[in-house]
Amino acid sequence: MSGQIEARLAELGVTLPQAAAPAANYLPFTRSSNQLFISGQIPMGPNGLEFQGKLGDGYGVEDGQQAARLCAINLLAQAKAALGDLDRIVRLVKIVGFVNCAPDFGDQPKVVNGASDFFVAALGEEKGPHARSAVGAASLPFGVAVEVEAIFEIA
């Protein structure tokens, strides 16, 4: 039987993918006391890497929001791999969103809303709201448009 968070994901039409293996010498997640730190996730979809490019130069805010949402889905996949049960999440503490963008692009917060809005919908009003940063970057790994990392409080 699935828990409350997985039931919300099903209502949203989201099936979590298999958690991706790290692409270099790092851990996909690490636990410290009651916190789960998840390494930055990129927009890997069912057909491979998606959203490769720059915001403000080929991609608009809505594209970036979809990329950030996909990153958030992958973060939950990592959380499930780490915890076995997403209902062990007490709350999302913080996310950091990196946006690959043109020098004059200033809508990083709007882009990262794609992840923030998804987390609130998936985790609910008590567990989903979080602190965050939205940072512009000159480039990101594999040329992706967005990368997001997360810190969860866990039981």
Rank of each mutant, 00 (worst) to 15 (best):
N74L: 06
M44Q: 07
K94D: 15
E126I: 05
L9C: 12
V61R: 06
R88S: 10
S116H: 13
M1A: 11
P103I: 04
L140I: 08
S139V: 08
D87S: 11
K127L: 02
A155G: 11
Q35T: 14
G13H: 07
I151M: 14
G3R: 15
A82I: 06
A67K: 09
Q66T: 13
A79P: 08
A7V: 09
F118E: 05
A82W: 03
A81Y: 08
A82S: 09
I151N: 13
G40T: 10
N74H: 07
I154Q: 12
T30I: 09
G128N: 09
N74Q: 09
G53H: 01
V112F: 04
A68W: 01
N100Q: 01
E62T: 14
V99Q: 10
D63R: 00
G58S: 06
A77P: 02
G40F: 00
K94W: 07
V90D: 15
G40N: 01
A21F: 12
D63Y: 00
G60Y: 11
L86A: 06
K80L: 04
A81G: 05
G114D: 00
V99S: 02
G106T: 13
K127D: 04
V120A: 03
F37M: 09
A138Y: 06
G56R: 04
G97Q: 07
Q41I: 01
R31G: 11
F119M: 11
P28H: 08
A145L: 06
K80T: 01
I73M: 02
G3W: 15
F51H: 05
L49V: 11
V111F: 03
